[in-house]
């Protein structure tokens, strides 16, 4: 605000449009921030509120800190199991996305091979198929090969969903590491593999971790495939969806909070790489 005042004093003629532009920008930002933060606020307030306070309105401005809702949630039948399943599926998705996405990204970044652009396009096109369309054939196929209602089966589907992002993030990551560094390593005694291990990998590691965490969040939040493909081994999202209309209100809020917390933490941790993925310099 002080800087605004000084610029006004220095350039009164230009201050007016600049000021209104800033006002517009500020209100747009405020609306967007509120759009995201208000639901999160309500969710957290209710999750940490006592069971009785959940349905109270208006909310007291100072949120209470009461773990009874969360305790209730944690003890609700099926929740711990679903939470564990979510972790397992998301963890597996992360590992497979890195394991498959890193070599694919490296190939896209370093080798000129026929069909490279087609491959790039195909990677993106997998996102163009609506999952509901694939769900039925997938379910049939999974039942046939015995992957239905398994952690690994669901993780495979989630890996498919996460893969385009994983591949493209890692391709741009490897592209940003100068080829000369690798070549220097080759001339100094490295094979392709050891140069990758000693030079490329250490430099790419933070970005690879970001891509992996991104895959984790995609899996953690995914509900459709999880609901369709699992019955006994439901993840938390599928479990909450299933019990939405039969479960008490505190359970919904506590579940919602538990669902978004890892996603928020992870996205916060990797925001730098998401920016760079979208071509926004952040240095």
């Amino acid at each position: 605000m002080t800087s605004l005042a000084t610029t006004e004093a220095e350039a009164p003629a230009r201050a007016e449009p600049r000021r209104s532009g800033r006002l517009l920008m500020a209100s747009a930002v405020a609306v967007l921030v509120a759009w995201v933060l208000v639901p999160i606020y309500l969710l957290v307030v209710n999750a940490f509120g006592s069971v009785a306070a959940v349905s109270a309105w208006p909310k007291s401005l100072v949120p209470e800190f009461d773990l009874s809702s969360l305790a209730f949630f944690a003890n609700y039948a099926g929740v711990p199991r679903a939470l564990l399943n979510s972790f397992l599926v998301a963890g597996l998705t992360m590992v497979m996305s890195i394991g498959l996405g890193a070599p694919a990204g490296y190939a896209l970044a370093r080798f000129r091979f026929p069909g490279a652009n087609l491959f790039r396009l195909a990677v993106l096109m997998t996102r163009a198929f609506p999952l509901p369309l694939l769900a039925l054939p997938l379910t049939v196929l999974f039942i046939r090969v015995g992957l239905d209602d398994t952690i690994i089966g669901l993780a495979l589907v989630h890996t498919t969903l996460a893969m385009p992002f994983a591949v493209l993030i890692m391709a741009s990551l490897f592209l940003s590491i100068p080829e000369e560094l690798e070549e220097a390593a080759w001339t100094l005694g490295c094979s392709r593999l050891s140069a990758f291990r000693k030079v490329v990998l250490p430099l790419a590691l933070p970005g690879i971790a970001a891509a992996g965490i991104f895959a984790f969040v995609i899996s953690w939040n995914e509900v459709f495939a999880a609901a369709v493909l699992t019955i006994e081994n439901k993840t938390l999202t599928a479990f909450l969806l299933q019990s939405l209309d039969v479960s008490p209100l505190p359970l919904k809020f506590a579940g919602g909070a538990v669902l978004i917390v890892p996603a928020l933490l992870f996205l916060f941790a990797v925001r730098k790489y998401l920016f760079s993925l979208w071509g926004i310099a952040n240095r």
Partner: peptide, 9 residues
């Protein structure tokens, strides 16, 4: 190399 290619890590 022209750009030195000193390993940054």
């Amino acid at each position: 190399f022209q750009n030195y290619a000193v390993f940054p890590h």
